[in-house]
Design a protein around this nucleic acid. Structure first.
Lengths: 340, 340
DNA sequence: CACCAACTCTACAACGTTGTAACGATCCGG
DNA sequence: CCGGATCGTTACAACGTTGTAGAGTTGGTG
């Protein structure tokens, strides 16, 4: 059985409060007493009971991270970044996964369940939530910070990447190198405020700015952004016979799936088709060829979001007005978009 | 402010204990009372306080999963499987990461910290722990189940893959196809009971059985099994000029890093060099060429481990003697080891 | 030397929950 | 219709910790 303050106090011949004071560095303690207590602590192997501490302070030391499937490497890396940032604040992370097939209602349920778990706060990387669902979040009884999507004027803090600008930059990167028929892989039909919608917008903006036409046949909708989706969509385009000389994939996994299909079809990257992804996953440095991509500032997103959440937790009810932060992105040029 | 049993009790006009009884499905409650209480719970938005529960009863509905870096795709997929299995038992999973540079002492600290969090049990996927450290685990005050490594006669339940046998089968797979100079990537110098040591043993057994010599130059030590390690080790072998016609990588990430370097060097897979990995990651189906690998039975490992842990948690102090389970593996043949 | 301030320590009450023991009410068999 | 068993509910204590209030001691000042 683990020892408690009582055991230590008995052994040291003082009250439990004095032991507590020693542990919490209360200033007014005679050196002799402190030493006695410290010896008793060492002797009993006392460790403070976390549950009791938390009960007293009303905290759990736990935050939830609600996000899509960990099998998606981007989110695994995000989870890693969040856990590292949380650990720096002494927090543990409870991960709750959203499945793509749940839809907005199911997704809100997961968030709800995460809150029910009894955590100090929730980080929420939106997957399918729509603008009109956001109001639901207002009722959350714990601090909530959104990651990764852009929802304007929401009731919560919000840390996001520059989806539109980055997608535009990726597309421009291809255009600058001479590509004019650029396929976009990963669009979701009808979606506007999700990553898919925003990246599609960036893509269209770049085309427009360059005076290039938008061709629906180059933007087949559908997919959950796994490698297999990239492969499927690429095959679909090849089979359709539509002409193209570059690919902007909405994430790296899709890009890699697509690249595989291109190579299988005898097309050379970047000679016949240039391709750029989005996310800057570790593995994009080791593929054949290496993949150009967008570094969306994932680590900074994680750190900022945890920072905000901790602030909100400490602030209690009040706190600053909802903040909206966009972290900077970077175009990472590698072999898959080289000229020639 | 979050509501408590007192608030609910006041609203429902009963004692707090009755509310507690309703929540914990105590059988003897009048339907009318139950309904009153449930309505009050809904009205107040009451959520049990985890810390108080833990303090009183020692249960939290939380288990820890201590494991290496999520960036390692194998572990991300394992975490997913564990979370799915845990959810089926109504448990939430707290993930704690071990860093490779922490060493055994740091690793035990993470396990210790995980226990301190106040969880009902711990799943522990060993990274650097050595045989002599295992004794430390005996003192764990909560049930603990080990995953993935083989440590004989430990004090805990243990669910593992057939590292030696699978590695041997992978090597034999290459030998059967005519390879005789097989490089092994991912060995850790001096390690014996970790995955690296066991897979190395399987490799050596296969060579021996086939009457092939063991050549140290084909087994460069070092690495944390990321893609970059595979690339580095492969480059090292190429630079050394030693002859080889096949590669057995100790995991898929290493295999993919190595494959990239081979192709860069103008070697064709499988024509010039055959290559097989280990883990059966999703992406091995989409690389160019597709990667032959070992399916180590990851999902079954996760399910079995959670099963064992739940049993131990419910059994309390006693329970069955420590169990040792090995799940079956499978050689997955793809393009990278084709003949010709 | 009286008195106030600072120092050192302690008793007690909470935090929110659940186990224990016990209460009155109801039901059943004889 | 009485006595014991069961039902439905409650008061109280306890889990291990920390905040509050205050007691006793020491030291310095007028």
């Amino acid at each position: 059985m683990a020892s408690t303050l009582h055991d230590v106090a008995r052994l040291a011949g003082v009250s439990i409060k004095t032991v507590s004071n020693v542990i919490n560095d209360y200033p007014h303690i005679r050196p002799a007493t402190r030493e006695k207590v410290e010896q008793a602590i060492a002797e009993t192997g006392y460790r403070p009971n976390r549950a009791a501490r938390l009960l007293r302070s009303g905290r759990t030391g736990l935050i939830s991270l609600v996000m899509p499937d960990l099998r998606n490497v981007y989110f695994a890396e995000l989870a890693d970044d969040v856990m590292t940032a949380a650990a720096a604040h002494g927090l543990s992370v409870l991960i709750e996964q959203i499945r793509a097939d749940q839809g907005p209602a199911g997704e809100l349920e997961v968030v709800e369940a995460a809150i029910q778990r009894g955590v100090d706060g929730v980080l929420y990387s939106v997957l399918a939530l729509r603008d009109e669902d956001v109001a639901e979040l207002r009722r959350a009884p714990v601090p909530l910070v959104l990651l990764g999507e852009r929802i304007f004027g929401g009731p919560t803090d919000h840390v996001t990447m520059q989806n539109v600008e980055a997608a535009r930059a990726a597309t421009e990167h291809l255009i600058e190198r001479g590509s004019t028929r650029i396929a976009a892989l990963g669009a979701h039909e009808g979606e506007v405020i999700g990553s898919a919608g925003l990246r599609l917008r960036g893509y269209r903006e770049a085309l427009e700015a360059a005076g290039l036409p938008f061709d629906e046949r180059l933007v087949p909708p559908g997919g959950t952004w796994f490698r297999s989706d990239g492969a499927r969509l690429m095959r679909q385009i090849l089979d359709s016979g539509v002409e193209f000389d570059a690919v902007f994939a909405f994430n790296d996994a899709v890009a890699l799936g697509a690249m595989r299909v291109l190579q299988e079809a005898g097309l050379r990257v970047p000679h016949d088709v240039r391709i750029i992804g989005f996310d800057d996953l570790d593995e994009t440095r080791y593929t054949m060829p290496t993949l150009s991509t967008i570094d969306p500032g994932r680590r900074l997103i994680a750190e900022t979001a945890v920072e905000f959440l901790v602030e909100r937790i400490n602030a209690g009810e009040g706190g600053p007005a909802p903040r909206e932060v966009e972290v900077p992105f970077r175009v990472v040029e590698r072999e898959s978009t080289a000229i020639g």
